[in-house]
């Protein structure tokens, strides 16, 4: 049997880390909005240092999200930021833009790299290509099903991470699309907030679902209408040895994130103890996961059992 997968969560602040470790988290993905995309919380440099300190106390890992799409004028700060990450000893840099890869190889050659563009890691040869460029891990697109994930894992030369729980990003634009609409309506943008705390949604009447939408310095982001949850369908992924399971904490509170983390920890432990124990508790764990959901957000199984056409 393979090693247990790493349970990776995205906390809102450094102080949440000890409780999340107690709940079963092995690693944390954190970052600063200027460099990372769609973070559960914005970690300034002090907060980053604190996160590393708190996590390392118990042997947990901290990965820095440096996965923004960078324009020329951000490259100078990017280099300086990677130096900072090197100094504070983060355990990996998560990137999508090859600019980060080049800077990291030069400035911080000993920090492991995780490749994550969110949407484009869709086949094992491409995953291995980024491995050859220096990535130790690839984060797969969320729009893949169980068979595709399994095939990638079986052929990958790098570690494979997938998201198992929470919201998914469906769209990023550099344009300020919510602000543009408000301005078009004649609203005063000085007083209209469009950040993720305002809880804005796009309502799709044909599907009768609401997509969370928000703006930040990286542009406009639109999120999935339901949270994926596969607490009761982990066996194939555990069997094939997927290396890391991510639980996404964006737009959720700490209590939710802690409970969900504990639930997945329980599921993984049960499976490794005895698969029949996991089998017996699947339904109970799924019910528990459902009970944790905010009233207005359902769960689904994402793309794990879906076929897409084109």
């Amino acid at each position: 049997m393979t090693d247990k997968p790493e349970l990776l969560v995205t906390p809102h602040q450094a102080n949440d880390i000890p409780d999340l470790i107690s709940a079963g988290a092995d690693a944390f993905l954190v970052g600063e909005e200027a460099f990372g995309l769609r973070l559960a919380g914005n970690f300034d440099r002090e907060e980053m240092e604190k996160a590393v300190e708190l996590a390392h106390k118990t042997g947990a890992n901290v990965y820095a999200a440096v996965n923004a799409i960078f324009h020329n004028n951000q490259l100078k700060n990017l280099k300086e930021y990677i130096r900072f990450l090197n100094r504070i000893g983060v355990d990996a840099i998560v990137y999508g833009d090859p600019a980060v890869l080049l800077i990291a190889k030069e400035t911080a050659p000993s920090i492991p790299l995780h490749w994550n563009t969110e949407t484009t890691a869709t086949n094992w040869q491409t995953v291995n290509y980024w491995g050859k460029q220096g990535a130790e891990r690839a984060v797969l697109a969320r729009e893949l099903n169980m068979d595709a994930i399994t095939e990638i894992k079986e052929n990958a030369t790098v570690d494979i991470e997938i998201q198992v729980h929470g919201m998914a990003c469906m769209f990023q634009s550099k344009r300020k699309l919510v602000g543009n609409y408000m301005e078009y309506q004649g609203r005063n943008l000085q007083i209209e907030r469009r950040d993720k705390e305002r809880s804005l949604h796009l309502y799709d009447s044909e599907r009768d679902v609401k997509y969370p939408v928000f703006e930040d310095r990286n542009g406009t982001h639109i999120m999935s209408p339901r949270d994926m949850c596969i607490i009761d369908e982990l066996d194939e992924l555990l069997d094939v040895g997927v290396d890391a399971f991510k639980i996404e904490g964006i737009l959720k509170d700490k209590a939710y994130l802690t409970e969900v983390t504990a639930l997945y920890k329980q599921a993984i432990d049960l499976y490794y103890q005895d698969q029949s124990l996991y089998n017996n508790k699947r339904e109970i764990m799924l019910d528990k996961a459902k009970s944790l959901q905010p009233r207005t957000r359902d769960i689904d199984t994402g793309f794990f059992f879906k076929e897409t056409v084109y």
């Binding site: 949407t119 484009t120 969320r142 729009e143 769209f171 550099k174 999935s224 897409t308």
Partner: peptide, 10 residues
């Protein structure tokens, strides 16, 4: 951003 939209998929 081209390549970073999966609205159709979802």
């Amino acid at each position: 951003y081209s390549g970073r939209c999966v609205l159709s998929n979802h």
